[in-house]
Simulated scan of single mutants.
Amino acid sequence: MIALIGLIIGIILGIAFNINFPLKLSPYISVAIFACIDSTFGAIRATLNKDFRPDIFISGFFGNAFLAAGMVYLGDKLGIPVYIAAIIIFGQRIFTNFAVIRRLLMDRIKTHH
């Protein structure tokens, strides 16, 4: 539930404050956002599975974002577009977690009717 509330607050703040980043930072920001969304969906999944741990969520949320941004930085220095691979991996994980979340919710709806 904490993750969902954080996601909603983040969306509201993102809409309320029109923050622009330099184009050069867009690969870093996009990967960090995908990492944070991945952590949020993982937290929602863990909550539905009744094994959510706030310490794991917080460390994963910030750790994944910084690690992903660091990998993009390293790739940038090496001339390798690492951010593309990171976005693909995070995107796959987000969709996988969403599929599991959807199934868990559908199972709960079926058992309550």
Results as ranks from 00 to 15, higher is better:
103 R>K: 14
38 D>L: 04
2 I>Q: 07
46 A>C: 10
8 I>M: 07
26 S>W: 11
46 A>Y: 04
74 L>H: 07
19 I>F: 13
111 T>R: 12
61 F>N: 01
26 S>Y: 13
2 I>C: 04
18 N>G: 07
42 G>H: 05
94 I>N: 04
81 P>Q: 10
34 F>R: 01
11 I>F: 03
66 F>W: 14
23 L>Q: 09
82 V>A: 08
78 L>C: 11
4 L>P: 00
111 T>D: 15
80 I>S: 07
88 I>T: 12
64 N>W: 00
100 V>D: 07
73 Y>F: 14
48 L>N: 03
42 G>Y: 01
61 F>P: 00
35 A>H: 00
35 A>P: 00
106 M>I: 13
35 A>C: 11
30 S>M: 05
107 D>R: 13
68 A>I: 03
47 T>V: 08
81 P>R: 08
13 L>Q: 02
69 A>Q: 06
106 M>V: 12
47 T>H: 08
91 G>E: 09
17 F>R: 15
9 I>Y: 07
88 I>P: 02
9 I>M: 12
30 S>E: 05
68 A>D: 05
77 K>C: 12
98 F>S: 08
51 D>G: 13
40 T>K: 02
84 I>G: 00
97 N>W: 01
5 I>S: 11
31 V>D: 00
101 I>S: 05
89 I>E: 01
41 F>I: 05
32 A>H: 01
6 G>T: 01
6 G>A: 05
112 H>F: 14
104 L>D: 06
67 L>M: 12
96 T>R: 09
38 D>Q: 06
70 G>V: 04
66 F>R: 09
59 S>Y: 09
58 I>M: 12
100 V>N: 04
96 T>Y: 09
97 N>T: 06
9 I>T: 09
79 G>F: 13
83 Y>D: 00
75 G>C: 05
57 F>D: 01
33 I>N: 02
109 I>D: 14
70 G>D: 08
24 K>W: 10
95 F>D: 09
80 I>P: 01
1 M>P: 09
91 G>Q: 08
79 G>T: 10
38 D>I: 02
43 A>I: 04
39 S>A: 15
22 P>G: 09
23 L>T: 13
84 I>Q: 03
110 K>C: 08
85 A>G: 12
18 N>T: 13
109 I>P: 03
44 I>R: 04
76 D>L: 05
109 I>T: 14
21 F>V: 06
37 I>C: 03
70 G>Y: 06
40 T>M: 11
5 I>H: 06
24 K>T: 10
46 A>N: 12
58 I>T: 06
57 F>Q: 03
89 I>V: 11
63 G>R: 07
64 N>D: 14
80 I>T: 10
69 A>T: 13
